[in-house]
Write a protein that binds this DNA or RNA. Structure first.
Lengths: 208, 208
DNA sequence: GTTTTTGCACTGACCAGTCAGTTCAAAAGA
DNA sequence: TCTTTTGAACTGACTGGTCAGTGCAAAAAC
């Protein structure tokens, strides 16, 4: 009997094949895009028969959709943790933003293929997983927006900032810088990249 | 007789059909991705026979590649113009960056579909048009890097900034903010968005 | 009279999804 | 302990459809 593919309660075996399929799919789709990646390729790279893909996921789209949910979930948790940690330590909201930048970089460092694929899909319209994507995106961005709002509330940030737009800009800054890092100067250290972005965040670009 | 599809010297008529094909392709590919978009669809939307597509372009890939070249060329020219104009007016390099942010926003406002498609392809590897894309990307980013270097040279920016990384981060900031603007709050004015990003650029976020 | 476009039939490769059958570990039965 | 049964998990050949690209004669545009 088939089981709903929305995760929980699967056997350990099943969960393991799912994981293998995610890993295979993420790199292939990051490189080639969703439509150019065949189910046969995914199965082959995962070391599994094609039928197994369909035993575990209702369709190619569903596999992809769950992959998105899974990945963005990890990112959101990581951002939230970074924000809460600095709050617990009594750090300023700028410190929280800085910690989140680092968390973002760590994530992208660990899952570059996922990040790539996420960016490639995010602003597309009319795709099957569009609504799923909106939901998870909003969860992640909301963490950044939350910190900005706290900063405005306690006077640390100007009341004139546009919270959603500034959040998007900050995310973009980290995203694009990190993807360029991974693509074009992968030998650089995370600390190095983090330092450059910190500087930009704190307006220590102009002046000396 | 077939003609090389690398543009110049085409008749006005031919150039017009090419343009129609670009416009049709850009929206379709932005929405669906390259592989999911069929040549038949492109031809239909352009109001042209399928054979005409192949009379004008050697293949689907070549059509797309020329589209990329064309679009990024427009962007680069626009950025360069913005940078040179403020230089001519004796503005500071921060002013130049600000003018380029505006130029970027204007571009994205006018060609949202192209921008979307460009972002979706930029960090992919192993695609046919990969090398073309690297070249045009570098042309555009180089304009930003140039302004940053001038700023460092004349003491306006810290010598410690990492030019390529900061350039990437700035591009990312504008790109993501603008795509979010177009996708989620399209009613806002360009000036509004520009003001928010200016503030961020000039470090007027923290403090009041 | 040359270039460009049209319309349309055709091909061959490719691919998402299906399904009848296999495997095997663990439960039930002896 | 050994045997049988069960069913979840997996397999891979197969199908039906799709799509990039071709070929070509006739029309339209220049």
């Amino acid at each position: 009997m088939e089981r709903s593919s929305t995760t929980p309660g699967g056997s350990a075996r099943r969960e393991a094949t799912r994981q293998k399929l995610y890993e295979a799919a993420v790199t292939l789709i990051a490189e080639q895009g969703f439509s150019a990646t065949t189910v046969d390729e995914i199965a082959e790279r995962a070391g599994v028969a094609k039928g197994t893909v369909y035993y575990n996921f209702a369709s190619k789209s569903v596999l992809f959709e769950e992959l998105l949910r899974h990945g963005v979930g990890l990112l959101t948790a990581s951002l939230r943790e970074a924000a809460e940690k600095t709050a617990g330590e009594g750090g300023s909201r700028v410190d929280a933003l800085d910690a989140m930048i680092r968390a973002g970089l760590v994530f992208i460092d660990r899952y570059p293929a996922f990040t790539q694929l996420y960016v490639a899909e995010l602003w597309r319209t009319n795709r099957a997983w569009q609504s799923t994507l909106m939901v998870v995106r909003q969860q992640a961005v909301a963490v950044v927006e939350g910190v900005l709002r706290e900063g405005v509330a306690n006077g640390e940030f100007s009341e004139e900032i546009d919270v959603p737009l500034t959040a998007a800009a900050l995310v973009g800054m980290v995203l694009v810088a990190a993807l360029d890092w991974k693509s074009f100067q992968p030998e650089r250290s995370l600390d190095d990249v983090h330092a450059a972005l910190s500087r930009l965040l704190q307006g220590r670009v102009s002046g000396r």
